[in-house]
């Protein structure tokens, strides 16, 4: 167990190092949600229905959720599909490395990347769009558990989805589609009040909607609760759904994960 954790952490350090050495990936992964935040924050100015909440605040909450999902889900799913294609997984499978250590490495390194991403987005939102950081410890605690649960759930989903693409070349296309779709129906770009109820129901199955909802509770405060569909942030339900994704994602990973490309085993 300790060996697994130690090797897992060594792998996390290695994965993080590898990520930062791919400069183009670094720039695009981190800048994409920031550019969107600057764009949306500049286009849609003003308050929401007299609540005193700015549109920029709303997008800050949504894009932090989308950014974390990008790092955890998209990055991991594509990264693992590449590992499967270029021989990384096969080589590791031939060593005595405890197999869970690979996943510990992926999860911890995406945690590091997500923390950087969130810090960057918060800095931009505070500096450019007057986002007020929460002042009470309770909201910070909410921020931490929503992000941790959301990240872990999205990461496990990413690991499971990595088995879908046939090879590394198709991975970006296969993985990006569900990610982009989820952003549109989970209240990141389009207010969920504008979506038909069946789409809201679809979004409610996946973790992104709940992560964003939890983040809104942190950044919009009590005044924003009235904007929610149910008039409440439903934090217990957020915890429940994200927790279920954690368990479900883990089961899905264990069932679907392949150490080689399809047709090679």
């Amino acid at each position: 167990m300790t060996a697994t954790l130690n090797i897992g952490l060594a792998r996390a350090a290695l994965e993080t190092k590898l990520f930062f050495r791919q400069r183009d990936a670094v720039i695009f992964t981190f800048s994409f949600p920031i550019i969107l935040l600057v764009l949306f924050g500049s286009i849609f100015e003003g308050d929401l229905e007299g609540t005193g909440i700015t549109v920029a605040q709303l997008y800050s909450a949504g894009l932090i959720g989308a950014g974390v999902m990008g790092v955890a889900f998209q990055n991991l799913a594509i990264g693992i599909a590449i590992d499967r294609d270029d021989g990384t997984l096969k080589r590791l499978a031939g060593t005595p490395m405890p197999r869970p250590a690979y996943f510990v490495g992926k999860l911890v390194s995406s945690l590091v990347l997500a923390a950087i991403e969130v810090a960057l987005l918060l800095a931009v939102a505070v500096l450019l769009f007057d986002l007020e950081l929460p002042t009470d410890i309770g909201r910070w605690a909410t921020l931490v558990w929503v992000l941790t649960l959301g990240l872990a759930g999205a990461a496990l989903l990413g690991i499971a989805v990595s088995s879908l693409p046939r090879n590394a070349k198709s991975a970006a296309a296969v993985v990006s589609m569900p990610y982009v779709l989820l952003q549109f129906i989970s209240g990141v770009y389009i207010p969920f009040t504008e979506l038909p109820s069946w789409l809201n129901n679809v979004a409610a199955i996946f973790p992104l909607k709940w992560m964003c909802q939890g983040l809104r509770s942190v950044f919009l405060g009590d005044a924003g609760a009235a904007l929610e569909l149910t008039g409440s942030y439903e934090l217990p339900k957020v915890a429940l759904v994200l927790g279920l994704w954690l368990v479900g994602g883990l089961v899905l990973c264990l069932v679907t994960f392949r150490w080689t490309n399809r047709g090679e085993s």
Binding site: L14, K17, L18, R21, Q22, D83, D86, G87, T88, K90, R91, G94, T95, P96
Partner: peptide, 17 residues
């Protein structure tokens, strides 16, 4: 696995390390 070494035919991994 610790007693067996495998040298693979097609590995292109870890290019940036």
């Amino acid at each position: 696995r610790a007693r067996v070494g495998i040298v693979l035919q097609t590995a292109n991994d870890a290019a940036e390390l």
